[in-house]
C-alpha cells in the first residue's frame, strides 16, 4: 500500500457507503488521490467501480461518508454543486456528446454558459483543444457524423475545455471498436504525461501498466488492492485479484 498524507489529497473519499436497495455497491470506501496522480480502477463487472467514479461528481448520491474535492466537501444539489462539477471533468462510456450541437459547440458550450467566456475566446480555446485531440477538421460537423473514437476524443476535449482539476473516465473505451481504442488511449496517455490528475475506470490493462501511478482493484463494492501497477500485475496480494488477473491472461 502506498502511504499518503491526506492533507494534500485532491480527491478524497472517507468511509463512503452506498446501497441500491438490498445491494451494497460501495462498502466503506477510503481513497485519496493526490494532485497529478493517475489512478486506474479495475475490477470485475458489478464491483462498483463505475459507481465510485460517478459518485465523485455526485452523478450518484452516496448514503454516508465524505467526498472532498480539493479540500471542499461535495455540496448538495444546487448552484454550489454545479460550480464544483465544473472543476471535475467527466468522460463517459457512451460519449454523451450533445446530439443537437456541432462538435465545436459541444466544446464551447461549457466555457460560454458556465464560465462566461466570450464566444471568440471560447472558439479559440476549443479549436486548440480539438486540434490537440486530432479532430480539429471535424469542428462544424454533428456528433452523429463522427466515428466512436472521434466522438470520445471530442468528449475529452469538452471536459478539458472547463480546465478541470481532475478528470474522471468511466470506461472510456468500452463502447469502441478495437481499432479505435488506441486513438483514445493515446490522448489519455498524453494527458497523463502532462500531469493531469486522472481517475480512470477501465478494462485496458495496457493503459494501466503504461500510464497509471496506482492501480486500485475493486471487488464486490470494496477496494481490495491499492498498489503500483508493477506490484499489482506482477505480484497481486489477494486471491480475488489473482483470480481476476489469471482470467484476463489466459485469453
Amino acid at each position: 500500500m502506498t502511504t499518503q498524507v491526506p492533507g494534500d489529497a485532491l480527491v478524497s473519499l472517507n468511509a463512503v457507503n452506498k446501497h441500491y436497495g438490498q445491494l451494497h455497491v460501495l462498502k466503506d470506501i477510503n481513497l485519496n488521490v493526490r494532485k497529478g496522480e493517475v489512478v486506474v480502477v479495475i475490477g470485475p463487472s458489478g464491483s462498483g467501480k463505475s459507481t465510485l467514479c460517478r459518485a465523485i461528481n455526485r452523478l450518484e448520491t452516496i448514503d454516508d461518508g465524505v467526498i472532498k474535492i480539493d479540500g471542499k466537501e461535495l455540496p448538495e444539489e444546487g448552484k454550489e454543486l454545479a460550480k464544483l462539477r465544473a472543476d471535475v471533468g467527466m468522460v463517459f462510456q457512451s460519449f454523451n456528446l450533445f446530439a443537437h450541437k456541432t462538435i465545436l459547440e459541444n466544446v464551447t458550450l461549457g466555457p460560454i454558459k458556465v464560465k462566461g467566456l466570450s464566444k471568440t475566446e471560447a472558439d479559440k480555446d476549443a479549436m486548440a483543444l480539438l486540434e490537440r485531440v486530432g479532430v480539429g477538421h471535424q469542428a462544424p460537423k454533428l456528433p452523429a457524423q463522427l466515428s466512436g473514437g472521434q466522438q470520445q476524443r471530442v468528449a475529452i476535449a469538452r471536459a478539458l475545455a472547463m480546465k478541470p482539476k481532475v478528470m474522471l473516465f468511466d470506461e472510456p473505451t468500452s463502447a469502441l471498436d478495437p481499432e479505435m481504442i488506441n486513438e483514445v488511449l493515446d490522448v489519455m496517455i498524453q494527458l497523463a504525461k502532462e500531469g493531469m490528475t486522472m481517475i480512470v475506470v477501465t478494462h485496458e490493462m495496457g493503459f494501466a501498466r503504461k500510464a497509471a501511478d496506482r492501480v486500485i482493484f475493486m471487488d464486490a463494492g470494496q477496494i481490495v488492492e491499492d498498489d503500483t501497477p508493477e506490484e499489482f500485475f506482477n505480484n497481486p496480494k489477494s486471491s480475488r485479484a489473482k483470480d481476476f488477473l489469471s482470467k484476463l491472461l489466459t485469453h
Binding site: N57, L59, E77, K79, A82, K83, L84, R85, A86, D87, V88, G89, M90, F92, S94, N96, L97, F98, A99, L109, G110, K113, V114, K115, A155, R158, A159, M162
Partner: peptide, 22 residues
C-alpha cells in the same frame, strides 16, 4: 437519453441550463 443530462451536469450546468440548452 439520460446521458445528455449527465454530460451537461458534469460540465457544471445548472438545472435550468441543462433543461433549456440541452
Amino acid at each position: 437519453p439520460v446521458g445528455q443530462a449527465e454530460a451537461a451536469r458534469s460540465i457544471g450546468m445548472k438545472f435550468s441550463q441543462v433543461l433549456t440548452l440541452i
